[in-house]
Design a protein around this nucleic acid. Sequence first.
DNA 1: ACATACACTTGATTAAGATCAAGAACGTAA
DNA 2: TTACGTTCTTGATCTTAATCAAGTGTATGT
Lengths: 182, 182
Amino acid sequence: MNDFIEKLGTFSEEDIAILEKEVQQHMCAKDTCLLKKGEVCSSVYFVKEGAVYHHTTDKDGNLHVIDVNTTNDWVLNHKSFTSRKPSTYQIQVYEDSELYELSITSIHKLIALSPSFLQMGKLLEVVTSRLRFFDGNYTADEKYAYILSNKPELLQKFPQMILASYLKMTPETLSRVRKRVS
Amino acid sequence: MNDFIEKLGTFSEEDIAILEKEVQQHMCAKDTCLLKKGEVCSSVYFVKEGAVYHHTTDKDGNLHVIDVNTTNDWVLNHKSFTSRKPSTYQIQVYEDSELYELSITSIHKLIALSPSFLQMGKLLEVVTSRLRFFDGNYTADEKYAYILSNKPELLQKFPQMILASYLKMTPETLSRVRKRVS
DNA sequence: ACATACACTTGATTAAGATCAAGAACGTAA
DNA sequence: TTACGTTCTTGATCTTAATCAAGTGTATGT
C-alpha cells in the first residue's frame, strides 16, 4: 500500500495511519464493473497491478474506448465524481487486477480529520487530464509514437481492438502504423 | 443588465441590488484584449452585444481559434479561472462590443454576503463545457450543420477564416461545405 | 474611377485513413 | 489431432479533407 500512499501526496505518520484504515484492497476478476453507466462515480481506485478500461457502446453496437489504465494509474470518472452526475460510460476491469479503493465518504472523513488530505483534490485533477493528442490534430503515427514513448505498457496489456478504439483509428490502421513505426 | 442577471441565476431583490454594484459595464473596441496569454483569468464577462474569440498562434505563425462567443454568451477561460494558473491563449474582442464584467474578487465578496451566489460556480461549469463535436469524430458537414442549427449567429459574426479554424478545417473546405449543406 | 488588399470560391491533385475482403497465426475445446 | 473462433496482417479500393493554384468578388482609400 506504500506506493499508493506515496502517489497520493505527502503525509505525516498519523495521517498515514488513519488513511490506511479507510483504504479497501480488492482482487477483481476480469470484467468486474467498477462503475456502471448511469451511476455517480463515488470512489477513486488505484491499480496496484492489472488493467482497467473506460468504455461505452453506441446505438449501432460500436465499442468506444474512452480511457485505459494499468499498474500505478488512478481510476475514476473525474467529471462524474466532481459534478455528482451520472457517468456516461462504464469502467471495467480488463484483466484480473489488484486495486485499492478510497470512497468519497472516506475522502470527506479524512479531510475533516486532517486538512492535509485536501491535496488529493489537486492530484485527481492532474491525473485525469486527457493526453495531449486528444485536443490537436495528430496523425495515426504520432498518436502511436506518443503512447510508445510515454505509456508503452498499454501496448502489452490491451489487444489491438481496444487500443485502436482508444486512439481513434481502425485496427487495420493500427496494425500498419505498428509495422511502420517499429 | 436584467438579461445578464437572469442568466446568472435566481436571486432576491436585495441580492440583485448588491450584485448590480459589483458588475462593471464596458464598451470595448475591436481587438481589445480581455485576457493575455500567460495571465490568470480573473474575471467573467457576459456579451451584451458583440463578438469575442479565444485564440493562440503557434510557432509556425498559424492561428488557432479555441472558442468564439457572441451576444448572450459567457466569456472566460474556465480552466485558468478555477485553477488560478496562467492562460495558454488570448481572449480578444472581435468587433466593437458591449460587455459586463464580474471580477473574481467581486464574486468572492458576493458569496461572502449571500450564499445564493454560490450557484454561479455551477453555471460557469456548464456554460464553458465544449460543444459535442470536439470529442467525437465528426465530418466537416456534421460540424457545420451543428453550428447552423445550434448557433447560426456565429456564421454571421465571424469570417470564414476564424470559423474554419474553430471548426478545425481549412477555409476552402468550409466554403465547399457551405455550398453543399445549403 | 482606379489600385490595392482581403475574403471567398472553384478546380485539380494529393495524402491519410476507412472500408472491404481475404488469408495467416494462435489458442482452446472436442 | 482437427476444427472453430479469435486476433492480427496484408492488399486493393474508396472517401474525406488538405494542399496548391488560379480566379472572382467586394470594400477601402487615394
